[in-house]
Simulated assay, not measured.
Amino acid sequence: MSAALTARSFADLQPLRRALQEAAAQEAERARLRREAERRARAERHLFRDAVGPVAPLKGLPDRHWPAPVPPEPQPLQRALDEKRVLRESLSDAFDVSTLLDVDDQLSFRRPGMGQDVTRRLRSGQWSIQRQLDLHGLRVDEAREALGIFIRLAHRTGLRCVRVVHGKGLGSPGKAPVLKGRVQGWLVQKKEVLAFVQARPADGGAGALVVLLAPN
């Protein structure tokens, strides 16, 4: 398996968030500069008229048709909005995922319309794991935000198969996994996720999920 990008703490995601914020700020500055350039262009077009006053066309000359001004290039406003949405993304903890899971020897999930062969191939390791997110040590709110950012960036960069390590809960009070059920519910709410299965023992077993993402 190729080297995997592992986010082991909430602090590891801060550069990603700063990068998104800087991108949004740069886009806003470019938009301001474009508006200023358009304002100057309009002023220059009216400079002659303001300097000489009203004019009348010369008689006997054919009419001239000036080409329409070239419209400005479309701006990626939706992408800027998406970046801001990522920073405030919140996945519901009240989502009931139990009715959507396939109950077999290992719980799994697949979108409606996806065949059972998808989870079977995912479980057998036919998709190579390309990136990993480790949620160990994170509070619930930190894990929720980290997972949302990780899945969105993985999908945007064209990754298809990732692993999410939520832990087995051995260090939690009562030895019960705190994040396992929440991570399943959060993943089901992400439109980028097509399916997930419990990882094979060599890949984390009951403490991790292997996730298949939709093509970008």
Results as ranks from 00 to 15, higher is better:
128 S>A: 14
39 R>I: 05
97 V>G: 11
1 M>F: 06
174 G>L: 03
193 V>T: 09
84 K>F: 10
9 S>D: 08
134 D>S: 12
37 A>K: 15
171 G>I: 00
196 F>M: 07
45 R>Y: 02
131 R>F: 06
201 P>H: 07
15 P>S: 01
179 L>V: 03
166 H>I: 01
209 L>T: 03
27 E>P: 00
146 A>C: 07
100 L>T: 11
39 R>Q: 12
33 L>Y: 04
160 R>C: 15
173 P>K: 12
215 P>G: 07
83 E>V: 15
216 N>V: 14
66 W>N: 08
3 A>M: 10
127 W>K: 13
27 E>W: 06
175 K>H: 09
58 L>K: 13
90 S>Q: 10
94 A>L: 13
122 L>V: 01
126 Q>H: 13
97 V>F: 15
18 R>Y: 04
120 R>T: 10
135 L>F: 02
208 A>V: 01
160 R>Q: 13
212 L>V: 06
193 V>D: 05
143 A>M: 08
39 R>T: 12
149 I>Y: 01
214 A>R: 15
167 G>D: 01
16 L>A: 06
67 P>K: 07
179 L>I: 03
25 A>Q: 04
85 R>M: 11
105 D>Q: 13
77 L>W: 15
156 R>V: 10
88 R>Q: 13
74 P>F: 13
155 H>A: 15
118 V>G: 03
211 V>C: 04
17 R>A: 07
207 G>A: 01
203 D>C: 14
15 P>I: 04
84 K>P: 08
211 V>Q: 05
20 L>Q: 07
64 R>V: 12
77 L>S: 13
184 Q>V: 03
138 L>A: 06
91 L>A: 03
168 K>W: 00
81 L>I: 05
189 Q>E: 01
187 L>Q: 06
44 E>W: 14
157 T>V: 10
101 L>W: 08
23 A>R: 04
3 A>H: 09
29 E>C: 01
92 S>C: 06
210 V>I: 15
148 G>P: 05
138 L>E: 03
75 Q>D: 11
164 V>F: 02
25 A>S: 02
119 T>D: 00
198 Q>W: 05
178 V>W: 03
148 G>M: 01
164 V>G: 00
105 D>E: 15
5 L>Y: 11
205 G>M: 09
47 L>H: 13
145 E>P: 00
175 K>Y: 02
98 S>M: 13
163 R>N: 08
107 L>W: 14
211 V>W: 05
189 Q>K: 01
51 A>M: 15
169 G>P: 00
11 A>T: 09
196 F>R: 02
174 G>Y: 03
79 R>P: 04
114 M>K: 15
160 R>H: 12
60 G>K: 15
180 K>A: 07
128 S>C: 12
41 A>Q: 15
79 R>C: 07
48 F>S: 02
136 H>Y: 10
95 F>P: 02
63 D>H: 10
63 D>S: 12
82 D>Q: 10
131 R>N: 09
113 G>I: 01
52 V>N: 04
211 V>A: 05
175 K>I: 08
216 N>H: 12
124 S>T: 14
159 L>V: 08
54 P>I: 08
22 E>Y: 00
67 P>R: 14
63 D>E: 10
112 P>Q: 05
83 E>P: 05
89 E>Q: 12
140 V>K: 04
152 R>G: 02
160 R>E: 12
163 R>W: 02
206 A>L: 09
26 Q>E: 11
117 D>L: 14
177 P>L: 06
126 Q>I: 14
139 R>G: 11
101 L>R: 10
